[in-house]
Write a protein that binds this DNA or RNA. Structure first.
Lengths: 328, 328
DNA sequence: GTGAAAGCGCTAACAA
DNA sequence: TTGTTAGCGCTTTCAC
């Protein structure tokens, strides 16, 4: 920074306008000679356009906001990377905003990003649909990268995985492996793609009863898995556990080990997400992979296409994938 | 966005300047009446100052750049969170830039950030000191969050952990536990704080020989741990493994399990970093904790103090911490 | 082929 | 107590 259009112009003996045109290639009718001279001086002086000034003028900053619960929760770093890689390709940068799923934080950060004139927002979330409305009212294009979104929000783009179907399949895998008494441990909330529903559907399909005693819902964390398993085992027997995510599966695995119950011998376990260390658990966790990186890059791509070429936002369903390892 | 200072001014029947003064509290000599009237209209209209315009004018954007190898590598998400939390407290935002440790990427991103007029850069890195020089020449204040930095770079702030001492202590722990034939598996590179040196020092201190056959260096990843262990075991016997980081320890643990060698019975293992899932490995990994979150927040704090109050940048040594679990 | 004028939204310095 | 002027660095329009 420091060296401006004017500096270049002065040294080249032309006006700032001409330099601008050359630098941006915005005008064909510049003599080859002038163009070359200017380009040379640009290099000499190490001129770099001031993106802030440019943004102010053009009302486009080539910046994306990334709103997420917490970057230090696995799953999100991959998403972040996907977003940034795609953004970079198109000359965009990304501003990261952790909100801890708090509505106030979200509101505040949206205001922040909007004041900073980001051109669009990728909104990754796990829970409530809190202030979707506020997001919309900001007028900014938004793409929601959602694992579970409650309602349709017209006007927003969406990248999602059918987690209900994913859990349906993970449950079916356990059933296929001979489990008859399958527990379900997950987080507590209503969602468009209800994991619990996927679990119920699979049981029903197989003619197995849904036993409330085998269901535990709290949070998407290790503690929930651990405590859930103990709670369920206090009341009933099980031969399989369907987990709402891999963190829960980690808790379940730990509790099972503590109780001396063999996996997959006595109890089979299946996770969800395929967080990068799941394969290193022991036994390596069988789980359902969600394409986190791809979700991020697809979201950024949609947003940028919209910003740059006015392509409409849309809904995109990405495929999950069973990852068979050693807990089933 | 959309509603400007002028809009507020018009509606309040004052000039834009007055509104600016009221909004920023930059002028005591505004009548209570005017102030109140303006504040009311600001609320009504939902006026939010345009940070881009403000940044251009003031030459301060209240934005930090965060340059790192890869957010999807454990350790960095925590750092990122630390940075963002501290930044937020001071009204700063953070632009995340992954560089995969590539010098070209770093150069390019630094230019990018600089053109965007970020007020400072947090540089988290694991390896080579590539283009430190370029960073400096950008004129931007920089704080390096480093696990291993090669040289002194005057002018830059620095947050670090004495990893050499950390490995010295982790090795000593193994020695104290009775190990005589300790392997060392880590990444290959020279650094200010040389982990390998820490390992050697500890052995020497205990009168134990340093056997090249027991040393393997490649990358900070699972594969290195896995292959390193196999390689070493092909040539010699061991009763302990000091790992350069937790990823390596994961590989070591897996290889050991594969070979039917018990941990910590036959071989003891110690990691480094205390990545958040280390405690869930089996057995739970004994390791050395690096305060990643704190490193991020300390870096951001130093930078912001410098930006806002011209406090000089400095070097800060953060403490590591032995986390005794079940692999030793 | 090139440049002058105007303005993006804001604020510091100075006037009134 | 308030407003005018000027300008941050850039680009668009339109005149030359």
């Amino acid at each position: 920074m420091g060296v401006t259009l004017r500096d270049v112009a002065k040294k080249a003996g032309v006006s700032a306008v001409t330099v601008s045109k050359v630098v941006n290639g915005t005008d064909q009718h510049i003599s080859e000679e002038t163009r070359l001279r200017i380009q040379k001086i640009v290099k000499e002086l190490g001129y770099v356009p001031n993106a802030v000034a440019k943004g102010l003028k053009e009302k486009r900053t080539n910046m994306l906001g990334f709103l997420l619960p917490d970057i230090s929760n696995s799953f999100f770093p991959e998403v972040a990377r996907g977003i940034e890689d795609m953004a970079k390709v198109h000359g965009f940068g990304v501003v990261m905003c952790n909100t801890d799923d708090s509505a106030e934080q979200e509101t505040e950060r949206i205001r922040f990003l909007s004041s900073r004139m980001v051109d669009g927002i990728v909104f990754a979330r796990a829970l409530k649909n809190s202030n979707m409305r506020q997001l919309l009212s900001s007028g900014l294009p938004v793409v929601v990268v959602d694992r579970d979104i409650e309602t349709e929000h017209t006007g927003m783009g969406q990248i999602f995985v059918d987690t209900q179907r994913g859990i349906y399949e993970s449950t079916s895998l356990l059933i296929g492996a001979g489990c008859k008494k399958i527990a379900f441990i997950s987080a507590e909330y209503a969602a468009r793609f209800d994991r619990y529903q996927g679990y119920c559907d699979a049981l029903q399909q197989a003619g197995l009863p849904v036993e409330p005693k085998r269901v535990y819902k709290d949070h998407y964390d290790v503690k929930t898995g651990y405590e859930g398993l103990y709670r369920i085992l206090a009341n009933t027997e099980i031969d399989g556990v369907v987990c709402g995510n891999d963190m829960i599966a980690v808790g379940v695995l730990n509790a099972l080990k503590e109780k001396g119950i063999s996996v997959p011998g006595q109890v089979k376990v299946i996770g969800f997400d395929d967080v990068y260390f799941s394969r290193y658990l022991s036994p390596p966790l069988t789980t359902v992979y969600q394409p986190a990186y791809q979700m991020g890059s697809a979201a950024a791509e949609m947003l940028i296409d919209h910003i740059l070429y006015q392509k409409p936002l849309y809904k995109k369903n990405l495929d999950f994938e069973l990852r068979i390892r050693n807990t089933v």
